[in-house]
Write a protein that binds this DNA or RNA. Structure first.
Lengths: 257, 257
DNA sequence: CGTTTAATTGACATTATTCAACCCGGGTGG
DNA sequence: CCACCCGGGTTGAATAATGTCAATTAAACG
């Protein structure tokens, strides 16, 4: 069953619009820009490869519904998942500066996205200020996530990493209004966790078991029951600050030194 | 010895201006915006902490000369270096969306940077289009570096990681015109490499020795002699594509499928 | 020189990977 | 209804990679 009118302006990128406009009131331009640059809506099926390494990416996608992972295959046969896109995230925003994708983009659930074709970067800010602002904001957000992932991969052990990514996902989904309470349904198998966390899937199993023995959670085929978020947060040293883009920064910031 | 006139418009962010204008001719606006938003020039000394975790960052810095690392200390006493900023890079560009720094910023060499105070993000694109474009471009660039770092930390072993980061640094410095030939002088001690690569400094020693036994390089107190870049590149699976932002993407991009 | 910081080495502990076997639940076809 | 298969998931044992500790050397610097 499809959206009645896929070009209904109020439905394009609703999650993005909501997130962005939490920060500042730019609704009108952004909506307008999304409509103006929109090419088509694409339906996603689990496992569907949106883009492969080396593909030229023609514009940017805005994910409206569903989960998409961005990953890289390595010569040895390993895979690293670089990030997980949720509704409201842009995919392939690097197309503004890079002609070809350095990663694979594959859907993990059903969902939908719209393809946008923004003007080239040097005209973007003047022609599509609302979209430009949103892209900038999204890029900053993604940088924040990536930086935190670098910290995890570099300096946290398996237990901390797993706890951290669970905290992160739970928080992101909460912000989207797609999670509340104890049970989190994740379209990820343990091998996905392995490739997010830079571990083997076997070690992920063991790590889940350890967390479950600690009474922090129960995990069973995609159903994650979060019994003690406080344990997870403490273990991971999770500080949601890097996700909290919603509180506007208004202080005039006193001159330092 | 200081720059004669620190506000000479042609000298502000010369590396940034060059990098950005390789891509598209927006010199005039960018120069103008840099001048207009410039607050002061700051001299850097090695070890100087520009910003600590939790500090409110008042605007953005544009590094003009020198090396700066962005890092995070962890509860257990470990440190992860998230990225290395070189001339032409922005520091703390997250200040557009995040009031407080999630990282430490510390200089590894002498150098200088300018502090910019761009308008808030919702006015940035309209009021300072040149700067907005540059920031966007820089964010995409950083995104690319961070993603590749995630891949390294997640799925490459010590040898591959070290080889990879060396390739990356050599390439970036070449682009800046600050490196050519065999010898690379790095203001990094092995502990820095450790904290970039998510390894212990002792293991970095061992890994450097392995590379040197392979005839790929010689390393001695900051002086890196690159004898066989081909070996390093092959080992790391290094594809400079993610750094090559200089070739403009001009193809009208044939509609796919 | 003496002091300090960084690099190095070897022995050993820890963490995570690999491999192989087994389990389990949900189809599916007979 | 049962036998089979298949994709995960789980387990233990062996192995490999990396970390930790302690002692040593080297270089840098006053």
């Amino acid at each position: 069953m499809d959206t009645p009118n896929p070009f209904d302006p109020d439905r394009i990128g609703a999650d993005l619009v909501r997130k962005v406009t939490d920060q500042f009131p730019m609704l009108p331009t952004l909506r307008e820009d999304l409509q103006a640059t929109l090419r088509e809506r694409v339906r996603l099926q689990p496992g569907h490869t949106i883009l492969s390494l080396g593909d030229t990416c023609d514009g940017t996608f805005l994910l409206e519904d569903g989960w998409v992972v961005r990953s890289r295959w390595l010569p040895g046969g390993g895979r690293q998942i670089v990030n997980i896109a949720l509704p409201g995230d842009f995919l392939c925003s690097s197309s503004l500066v890079l002609a070809r994708s350095e990663y694979d983009l594959v859907a993990r659930t059903e969902g939908s996205m719209v393809r946008l074709r923004p003007p080239p970067i040097d005209k973007l800010v003047t022609e599509r200020p609302g979209l430009a602002t949103a892209l900038m904001w999204a890029a900053a957000h993604e940088n924040s996530l990536l930086s935190e992932r670098v910290v995890s991969l570099g300096r946290r052990d398996a237990l901390e990493r797993l706890a951290h990514v669970i905290c992160e996902l739970a928080t992101r989904l909460e912000h989207l209004g797609r999670h509340s309470g104890e049970v989190l349904t994740l379209p990820l198998i343990q091998e996905d966790f392995a490739d997010i966390l830079g571990l083997s899937s076997i070690h992920v199993t063991r790590t889940f078991r350890r967390l479950s023995e600690m009474g922090a959670l129960d995990y069973r085929s995609g159903r994650l029951r979060l019994k003690r978020m406080d344990i997870l947060r403490r273990l991971a040293g999770f500080d949601p600050g890097y996700l909290r883009f919603s509180q506007p920064k208004n202080e005039p910031a006193a001159p330092q030194s």
